[in-house]
Nucleic acid binder design. Structure first.
Lengths: 226, 226
DNA sequence: AATGCCGGATTGGTATACCAATTTCTCGGG
DNA sequence: CCCGAGAAATTGGTATACCAATCCGGCATT
């Protein structure tokens, strides 16, 4: 069946618990799930399970085929689309951010960035939810940009989770994020846009590697596309 | 209480019925709603009502303040953000569309466009749901672009509904849409991008006008922002 | 042995019952 | 007349019961 994660009734809400189970590959990509099985596993009734599943479908971690649910497989094609999309939207977002961000906002991002980097635990990294890119997008003062980036960021959540397993990957990310933030602070819109594109390209490669490495752990159904 | 729309139990699913009630201003922007009141009005149990409300919150037609629901007021600031976002994303989408669209896809869009224009009924226009912009975005073969445009299009749904009350507004829209589609067909990526921007600007003005005109019908809570 | 049909088990969708928290109303004291 | 305390009603959140559709397996027939 499944491992240790979700048996005793945590305090955390069911959405977080389910998401964690998916991200940690406790629930296998490509595998079918049913509301009732989850109800039994997580010891909550179907109503909140259903609600959580809605969110997870929306976030792309669960897919529906007709009436039945399945854990979303890794979709290489989708990942390419996500990064292509980000390359359109994120440069525009940081250009605006470079114009509009206040020093306080920048400091706040830098603080939580360092905080979560120095004392890294999967739960914290996940709980904080809004990550760097979403918070930068928020600096653009355009909620559409912010939520679009958030949606799209969520779709690579599992892959990033995989690639964040190594301290090295985290360090690279932290360095590039710092650089972007500095450029925003310096009001260098074009520089920030370029840095974002470069960062995107490197993360894209990392993510694809991480999935390839995880390929062995997953059945043929676990990875699709391309 | 409320007008004629939703009393007898239609066949249509509750999400459509609720959305229609909101779009037609049967449910007043800014007004509080409760699951139980809707349950009584629409003669379905709270479970599907909750589900529908979840979708409507996601689409921006309903807002949550703490635990309670309210019909989303028109938000002028949000509308500006929506159009700013579209001006970033849509040109990129049609550029890709101009590269990738097949003649069949273009013909399909043109057909349903003319179809829904010639024999216009509010229900059909609404039911078809995916409208021109979303379908064009789909031509980019990037699902992120498609869903981002869809999300953002939904957020101006009520405003466009208002502006589509006049045959004149519909005709203008139809003409501009045709022009964009022709440019895509001609593989003129830059021309299509320019046409989209021009169209966006004109629609933006139309939409703001429509809301201003509707201002009188709505209480102070019905319009916020700016 | 292969196939097709039937029945039970499982599924998601819906209705309803129950609860705790919040809001609203009322009524008494100042 | 105003204000506040407490009770009653209303709210969203959750659990559960019920239903119809679907899926699956086994048995009978060929």
């Amino acid at each position: 069946m499944m491992a240790s994660t979700g048996q005793q009734a945590d305090e955390r809400d069911i959405l977080s618990r389910l998401r964690f189970a998916i991200l940690s590959l406790d629930l296998v990509p490509g595998e079918a799930v049913s509301e009732r099985a989850l109800e039994a596993q997580f010891q909550v009734s179907r109503t909140p399970i259903r609600e959580a599943l809605f969110h997870l479908v929306r976030d792309g971690l669960v897919v529906r085929d007709g009436r039945s649910y399945a854990i979303a497989p890794f979709d290489m094609a989708e990942i390419d689309e996500v990064f292509a999309f980000r390359d359109i939207v994120e440069p525009a977002a940081v250009r605006l951010a470079a114009k509009l961000a206040t020093p306080e906002q920048i400091a706040a991002i830098r603080h939580s960035m360092n905080f979560s980097h120095e004392e890294f635990t999967p739960e914290r990294w996940l709980e904080m939810g809004l990550d760097f890119h979403v918070r930068c997008a928020a600096l653009s003062r355009n909620r559409c940009l912010e939520t679009a980036l958030q949606d799209v960021t969520l779709r690579t959540l599992r892959a990033r989770w995989l690639s964040f397993a190594s301290e090295e990957g985290r360090a690279t990310t932290h360095r590039e994020h710092s650089a972007i933030l500095n450029l925003i602070e310096a009001r260098d819109a074009e520089g920030a846009a370029r840095a974002v594109l470069a960062h995107s390209a490197s993360v894209r490669l990392e993510v694809r590697d991480a999935i390839e490495n995880a390929r062995l752990f997953m059945g043929r159904r676990g990875i699709v596309g391309e």
